[in-house]
Design a protein around this nucleic acid. Structure first.
Lengths: 250, 250
DNA sequence: AATGAACATTTGTGATCACGTTATAGTAGG
DNA sequence: CCTACTATAACGTGATCACAAATGTTCATT
């Protein structure tokens, strides 16, 4: 894969935006976490300006919410919002896969195979971080292959909104007994040139995972009992200090 | 319809953003038109800051393109981009209609009826501006009724990108002989409680209109002959000066 | 110890400025 | 009449400042 851009030649505002975007998609922030302009600017060693614009851009995509005071906050999803997210994903991501199917060549297939293998190994090793990473990588290799830039950016926006909660729920996700390896089946369908089958499989995966999480995950509008949102953190009591908004060194 | 917010209580940046967004969706700008920060700021009587943030937000939604120099420009769509737009719309807008269908009550139905009547009258009067407005209003009443905020904002982003070209092509659109009144049929289906039928009808409309325009409209990557982009302006030689970016008085 | 008021800090917003780049118009040369 | 160059204007970017609103903290009071 070619380097998307030379980071050095980009404006500060653009790099700030991309780093926040990536962090959000990967679940590096916790739901409810406040992202203040000055803090982010300080963490990146710039003035407030690039951080301000970057945050407002994210708010436009609804990747962050914005309090009445103007402060950006990592969204806490309501059940309705999470359901909506699932509904849209179940429509758009299979579409992307359908567009990508005829464009997947041999090299891409082996790349995908490797990712599926990694994901499977991580699952057996009970390593949820790695499982989630592999799942995400698998899908986005496909979505990039669709060569539909608008569609891709819409899907990314959906993932940004979902990312923080997904990350929080990684122990729930990993706890689900995987009847079969769905990504392996998608891969098989792609190898056989059955794009529509792969697409249907993906749609089923998104819908069933969404339904499962609606049952298992706590949401912002659930009645609070015993700490509410703060259960289901990682088991080894990781009560560490909230991580810095953006670390300049990664 | 309730006033969404009171404009006076909003930040300058937010009002700037909303005005540009509306203008884009309605096709008030021409493809290729440059939107400079300072010009827009001057037109609104503010400093450059709100205009800067507003334009960057629009760029994030891909509602405007950004030249290498950083200047925002109203997009000129390539055929591929227009096709992609149609493909995404054909997936999302029927979804929105499906979600909206069970929520459409009597008052909404009469509102929709009135809009359809207006549109039909405008078509007979050969008034393309009014036809396009009615079509847009009809659909967005439905999309709002879906009560799915993310979905709505995605759809609006798609329309923003399409708006300028659509406006340019209004004489082509109006010139197409309408076999039947599709929106009336959608309305009938809704009245009968057949949301899926309405949705399928809408999908067909989007797909056939997209295909039709792909044949009839000139695109940014078409070979230029005889003025290229500049044919198909309104017949009464409206060679008026390019309208101001944003008029402060509306 | 719990409550509330006063203070200090942090926050977003918008304006202004400096800097380097890009686009544009005018002019000279072919 | 067209092209190439140059000077001037306009542009985007990022930093900094002032201001008002919101937030968090401290301390006195009950």
């Amino acid at each position: 894969m070619q380097p998307v851009t030379d980071l050095d030649s980009l404006s500060l505002e653009e790099t700030t935006y991309r780093r926040l975007r990536q962090a959000l998609m990967e679940g590096a922030f916790e739901p409810g976490q406040k992202l203040s302009i000055r803090r982010i600017a300080a963490a990146l060693g710039t003035s407030a300006m690039p951080a301000r614009t970057a945050l407002r851009r994210l708010a436009t995509e609804q990747a962050v919410d914005v309090l009445p005071s103007g402060t950006a906050i990592v969204p806490r999803l309501t059940r309705a919002a999470f359901r909506e997210l699932g509904t849209i994903r179940a429509e758009l991501e299979p579409l992307a896969l359908r567009l990508a199917a005829p464009r997947i060549g041999g090299p891409r297939l082996s790349e995908l195979e490797a990712i599926v293998r990694d994901g499977w190994a991580a699952r057996e090793a009970n390593n949820p971080e790695e499982v989630l990473r592999a799942d995400r990588d698998f899908l986005f290799v496909l979505y990039h292959a669709a060569d539909a830039p608008m569609l891709l950016s819409i899907i990314e926006a959906l993932w940004m909104r979902r990312g923080p909660h997904f990350w929080d729920a990684r122990w729930i996700i990993i706890g689900r007994v995987p009847a079969e390896n769905r990504h392996a089946e998608i891969l098989d369908a792609l190898r056989a040139g059955k794009g529509d089958e792969a697409s249907a499989e993906l749609k089923a995966e998104i819908e069933s995972t969404t339904a499962y999480l609606l049952e298992q995950m706590p949401f912002a509008d659930d009645p609070v009992e015993d700490g509410g949102f703060d259960r289901l953190r990682s088991p080894a009591g990781s009560t560490r200090k909230r991580r810095a908004a953006v670390g300049p060194s990664g």
